[in-house]
């Protein structure tokens, strides 16, 4: 396999605040391969947006990468300055779709002009070529080519969102980082947007990192996922495998907590308590206070990723995987899981 588009290894990020340094992300690792759609899911405050910001080099001033590496196409970028990021990475290698993308277009510039500016700064592309590329991307996201010369206010909210996707795509990046791209949208609009992203996927081999709190979006749209809890990656692997039979206590409960419109009688589980404040060095499992399986060990050491050994790259960070598995699945692997393994390999 060719080298991964994005490789995050043992990433630890801290924010310095008045009350001391808060560890937003601790020892997070994952990789995204070419053309792969990767989902990062977790509750608010779990550090998923911080990871995204680190990847595009956009951490807040008080945020700092303490250790670990971020490799984009093999090259370490975590120590890049803003200028280096602009010159080498942003837009060309990695582009970004923010949460309320309607507010991320310059209201005073025609979309075409915005594209030409980006093309000039990041890719030395002549304006004519930029317009041409943008028109192509407009076509893909279902906007008429003729509209590239309009101002953002002439577009509806959904169309602005698509224009942002077109801009994110038009310099042909290897990876798009999308931070809750549809949270502000209603379900029908959300589905429309993913319909266009499906098309993007068909026609280009761009990879995507989708950050969301909604497991079902990841289930439908991503090949691989990482579930985060308070800065730690709890579980990681191929979507089908992980969601068919989650192994980490947090993933198990999270899956149970989701109301399902197609199953209104489902008993909803609750993940007790709330995520801890992670101050300073995190040398414990951040889920320990909420976990029914927790032992003393869990509050004394941070668990590392354990291979599940189901044949895929499924891992979970938990000391008591075997006990959890026995209690949860009664020793018998679900049929579903075995079927999915077959399709994943």
């Amino acid at each position: 396999m060719s080298q991964p588009v994005l490789e995050v290894s043992d990433l630890t990020i801290q924010y310095s605040t008045d009350g001391g340094s808060v560890t937003a992300v601790s020892d997070a690792s994952f990789t995204i391969d070419e053309g792969e759609y990767f989902g990062l899911v977790g509750e608010s405050g779990c550090g998923k947006s911080t990871v995204a910001r680190a990847v595009i080099g956009g951490l807040d001033d008080n945020g700092q990468i303490k250790s670990g590496t971020i490799r984009v196409n093999g090259e370490e970028i975590q120590d890049y300055t803003t200028e280096e990021m602009n010159e080498r990475v942003r837009w060309k290698d990695i582009s970004f779709i923010p949460q309320s993308s309607m507010n991320n277009l310059d209201p005073l510039l025609r979309i075409e002009k915005q594209a030409q500016k980006l093309a000039d700064i990041h890719a030395d592309m002549p304006p004519e070529e930029a317009s041409e590329r943008l028109a192509e991307m407009f076509e893909i996201v279902g906007l008429s080519e003729a509209r590239i010369s309009e101002y953002p206010h002439q577009f509806s909210g959904g169309m602005q969102q698509r224009a942002v996707i077109a801009l994110a795509l038009f310099l042909d990046p290897d990876l798009i980082v999308a931070d809750e791209p549809t949270t502000a949208l209603d379900v029908i609009m959300q589905d429309q947007m993913f319909k266009y992203l499906d098309k993007v996927r068909e026609e280009l081999d761009t990879s995507m990192m989708l950050i969301t709190h909604d497991v079902s979006l990841i289930y439908e749209n991503c090949d691989k996922l990482a579930i985060m809890h308070s800065g730690q990656v709890a579980e990681y692997g191929y979507t089908d495998t992980v969601l068919a039979e989650p192994r980490h206590p947090y993933s198990i409960q999270l899956k149970q907590a989701f109301p399902d419109v197609h199953n209104p009688d489902k008993d909803l589980a609750t993940v007790k308590g709330s995520p801890p404040k992670t101050m300073g060095e995190v040398d414990y499992c951040t889920f320990v206070d909420r976990c029914p399986w927790a032992t003393e060990d869990c509050s004394e050491h941070a668990p590392s990723q354990q291979e599940i050994g189901d044949g895929s790259l499924h891992t979970a960070a938990c000391f008591r995987l075997d006990e959890v598995y026995r209690d949860r699945y009664d020793g018998e692997p679900a049929l579903q899981d075995q079927q999915n393994q077959g399709s994943d390999l």
Binding site: V187, I188, Q190, D191, D214, V215, S216, L217, Y219, E220, D240, L243, A244, K255, F258, D260, V261, H262, N263, Q336
Partner: peptide, 10 residues
């Protein structure tokens, strides 16, 4: 509306 809701059942 119902059809557009993403599902997580396998």
């Amino acid at each position: 509306l119902i059809q557009a809701i993403p599902s997580h059942s396998l």
